[in-house]
């Protein structure tokens, strides 16, 4: 501070400030693009699919994970304290689940489920579950065929 009482320059001209604003907004746009191009944090996924889990069997070991797959029809057998069933990935991969705790109301064949649990050993396809969750799709189709016409004109 010099002690001089002459008025200081106004901080910045409005054109400079608007140029800077544009620059900053440009930076923000780049940030968004970087985020989107990064495949965005696969760790935030709530579950591993059967395919993913089998692909990384070696690192997963017997760690507790959430495993997602579609219940194979005809494999469900309900036990006293839960259910055992087979879930399938997108290909021919199968995992044999025995889970404790009562399955949710919607649990049925051919529905995608998420099972919390772990593989019995680092090499086995047996999966010990402690909780079954149903992951239903976002499609809603009427239960009684013939009562509703689908958007493509067919009755279903």
């Amino acid at each position: 501070m010099t002690g001089s009482l002459t008025p200081v320059e106004p901080p910045r001209s409005s054109s400079r400030s608007s140029r800077r604003s544009l620059g900053v907004i440009g930076v923000l746009v780049i940030v968004v693009i970087v985020l989107l191009s990064q495949g965005l944090l696969t760790s935030l996924n709530y579950f591993e699919t059967v395919d993913q889990a089998l692909a990384q069997r070696a690192t997963l070991g017997t760690k507790v994970i959430r495993l997602e797959g579609v219940v194979v029809p005809g494999t469900i057998s309900r036990t006293n304290d839960g259910a055992s069933f087979t879930i399938a990935g997108s290909g021919r991969e199968r995992v044999y689940v025995s889970a404790q705790g009562s399955p949710p109301q919607l649990f049925q064949a051919s529905i995608p489920v998420v099972v919390v649990g772990h593989f019995v050993s680092p090499t086995s396809l047996q999966f010990d579950g402690t909780q079954i969750m149903v992951k239903h799709t976002s499609s809603y189709i009427a239960a009684h065929p013939g009562r509703v016409t689908a958007p493509n004109g067919t009755s279903r």
Binding site: R20, S21, I25, V27, V31, L35, Q38, T42
Partner: peptide, 23 residues
């Protein structure tokens, strides 16, 4: 485990907060 993945989000947040703060 995945080290870089989480790095990126913090780094991006740093740039974003700096930009918003300047603005």
């Amino acid at each position: 485990g995945a080290l870089w993945e989480w790095w990126v989000i913090v780094l991006v947040a740093l740039v974003a907060y700096t930009a918003v703060g300047i603005l």
